[in-house]
């Protein structure tokens, strides 16, 4: 009996299934299957139906109707544009500022440890805390910023109620929190650059810009690409900040793709339509991942 089992064990799929090794993988496979793969398949399936949450027994196939509706839905389009705007406002600034601050405080010293801790501090606040904190700070009547603006003689600003300002305000808040961690990653990379490189450049008479361009940037390219990827995908996934700060308003001006998907699914209970948005979003993520692979491979 044991012999047979050992023989099966050595060979093939069946042997693996019967062995205790399989138990190592089983829990993770079940959970990922049920809560990662199955929901993705469900989203694809539902996206071709008119599934309405309150009528789960009355689902019919509607073909690509949900997708053509997205193309015509002005608010859906707006949420895609908004997400792109978030990326444009946040990603370049976040990468540039994290790099800039990292360079300023990379050198190990007591003063820099203080600055590092100060710059890192927003990271320990959770997104909900950051959102509520800034909601109060930027309050039109009682917020510190507006009281301060008034003292300086400026007009009070409706940071969240003004459609021309709300998205920028949320971008700023996300940026304010996001810089810290990226800065630490870049700083760790900067500290690994051998100082002999800079000394050699000094002897050659290179100026600060040349040193930055030809030594610093090439040495930390990997980390910069990593930061770029993390920040870009992270920014496309924004949902909590607009949900808590503006609920997507005013006039849909701050709603992100995921927030619009969420609203369609929960408030309007249009599961079919919401699923179609999820699928379009997933395709967008695949496209981004594809571009990133190209970017990384080129190096």
């Amino acid at each position: 009996m044991n012999k047979i089992r050992r023989r099966i064990n050595k060979h093939g799929f069946l042997g693996f299934i019967l062995s205790s090794k399989c138990l190592f993988l089983l829990p993770a496979f079940i959970l990922i299957g049920v809560f990662v793969i199955y929901p993705l398949l469900l989203a694809v399936g539902y996206s071709f139906t008119d599934y309405y949450l309150l009528k789960p027994n009355d689902i019919s196939f509607v073909g690509f109707e949900n997708y053509t509706e997205i193309a015509q839905d002005k608010y859906a389009k707006q949420s895609f544009v908004n997400s792109t705007k978030y990326v444009i406002f946040i990603v370049p600034l976040q990468v540039a500022l994290s790099l800039f601050l990292a360079i300023l405080i990379a050198k190990k010293s007591k003063v820099n440890t203080f600055f590092r801790t100060a710059f890192f501090s927003p990271y320990i606040l959770s997104i909900i805390v950051v959102s509520l904190l800034w909601k109060n700070i930027l309050d039109p009547e009682l917020g510190i910023v507006n009281v301060f603006l008034a003292e300086l003689g400026f007009a009070k600003q409706e940071f969240f109620a003004n459609p021309d300002l709300a998205l920028q305000t949320i971008s700023f808040i996300i940026l304010w929190q996001g810089i810290s961690f990226q800065m630490l990653i870049i700083m760790a990379a900067l500290q690994e650059i051998p100082s002999s490189l800079y000394e050699a450049a000094d002897i050659e008479g290179a100026n600060a810009w040349q040193k930055f361009r030809y030594i610093t940037v090439p040495s930390i390219k990997d980390q910069l690409v990593f930061v770029l990827i993390v920040v870009t995908t992270g920014t496309f996934k924004i949902i909590i900040e607009p949900l808590v700060l503006t609920n997507g308003g005013p006039q849909g001006s701050t709603s992100s793709i995921l927030l619009y998907m969420f609203e369609q699914g929960t408030r309007y209970r249009q599961i079919g339509y919401s699923s179609a948005i999820t699928v379009v979003f997933a395709l967008l993520l695949i496209l981004i991942a594809f571009v990133q692979r190209k970017l990384v491979k080129e190096e």
Partner: peptide, 9 residues
């Protein structure tokens, strides 16, 4: 694919 994208499902 982030968790948030399939919240509804």
């Amino acid at each position: 694919f982030p968790f948030q994208s399939v919240l509804i499902q």
